[in-house]
Design a protein around this nucleic acid. Sequence first.
DNA 1: CGGGTAATTGACCTAAGTCAACCAATGTGG
DNA 2: CCACATTGGTTGACTTAGGTCAATTACCCG
Lengths: 238, 238
Amino acid sequence: MTVPAAQPDRSFPALRRLAALTPLGDEATAALRRAAADARPIRARREILCEGRPITAPLLLLDGWAAQVRILPDGRRQLIGLVLPGEIMGHCGFAGPVASATTVALTDVRTCVLPDTAGLPDLGRAYAISRAMDETHLMAQVVRLGRLDARERILDLLLELHERLALSGVASGNGFTMPLTQEMFADALGLTSVHVNRTLQQSRRSGELEWSGRHVTLPDRAALRAQVGRARTVVASR
Amino acid sequence: MTVPAAQPDRSFPALRRLAALTPLGDEATAALRRAAADARPIRARREILCEGRPITAPLLLLDGWAAQVRILPDGRRQLIGLVLPGEIMGHCGFAGPVASATTVALTDVRTCVLPDTAGLPDLGRAYAISRAMDETHLMAQVVRLGRLDARERILDLLLELHERLALSGVASGNGFTMPLTQEMFADALGLTSVHVNRTLQQSRRSGELEWSGRHVTLPDRAALRAQVGRARTVVASR
DNA sequence: CGGGTAATTGACCTAAGTCAACCAATGTGG
DNA sequence: CCACATTGGTTGACTTAGGTCAATTACCCG
């Protein structure tokens, strides 16, 4: 639940996250460092992976936020899943891979090629865990959109984001930096920005969350988690 | 788009599906046959995999329908994803795996242990493709729940089900056998059974679908697909 | 200071939910 | 073979969460 403290901490967020998933040996760490040294910056709004195009190689998100997005012919837009620092895009285990959704940079972003696992079982393990978590997040998204009301969706997603960001050490205590506009946030929640705004204000007034400028705080996460019926995300057992 | 015809067709649905994903050699086919010979029947409503419990081994669904489901403390229920014959449950690539959602049998069901891929690269490939498709289906579910209205959700899901069932040769022309009650269907769609019922009737009257008893027909799938903005699911491109 | 983006507000509308019957099919035990 | 119970589908009357449209205001940033 807390951020791993014992690290040598010459580490960047993506490394912290992967190391938090499973212990990484020096080789793996070095491989990640090497990959990250060759980072590719991408501006906000640019596409990172494009639906239907072959994926060059899986990518590691070093900084910034991205999202898989689908836009319907009539312009409706849904953010399918968010990608946070240390998370992997284009995860896939077979030879002829095709991105199944477009991934766009929501903020300015830095990516690098995901180091190959050959000879590094710990890295492979980290990727596998990461992928399992992706799936968990997708399932959580389905439940949010299917059965939670606006307030619950907002709180649930914010709680999830906090947990995910904490893994890479990017969350601060009870809060984190929220680079999304309310409109993008609404697109992730299957709501309108207008309605998100109103609901957000209620939650602010009630004191269950703070959201000013680019910073979000959830004063009492435990209480919220219980209210929203958020199952603690158990993935890495052992 | 059409069901593979050239098969020797001593095949059962699950085998047909996996063979449709990627060509399978005799060894792989034999392994699947052997596994299927040792099938385990499970009654409707029983749990197949349970959230938070370690997964014994990935399972192959031989017959019947299952679903990953999450039930909220107050009783709201969401079917996160459906599992159809030939599809895999407890797909996961790492050592300490934990089911991230409960999977229940929606009908009477037969499962078997998923044969190991050791020495069978074609099998591994089939599994990987299958897993990528799972992810695609989850993402489709997110878009449905997030941005489609009731009619669109229904049609979109029915179209998807038809495509998936066609892979295992279980769909018949424009239709298929639908073992779900309207209530279960509603739980998959994030709607009420009442509202599903009403919407269904409209669609029936308009002639865009038939649903009588256990059988669903979509007379003009191409037209519907276009209306719903359903991106054809490209996954296996060489 | 001007111009653009993001947040906020108000008035009004509608898709979907709720509650409560009611009906049809099926099945079961006597 | 039939009363009865169950389950799933169908309807109606009414409520409500969230959407739509259209301003207005707050914020940035050069």
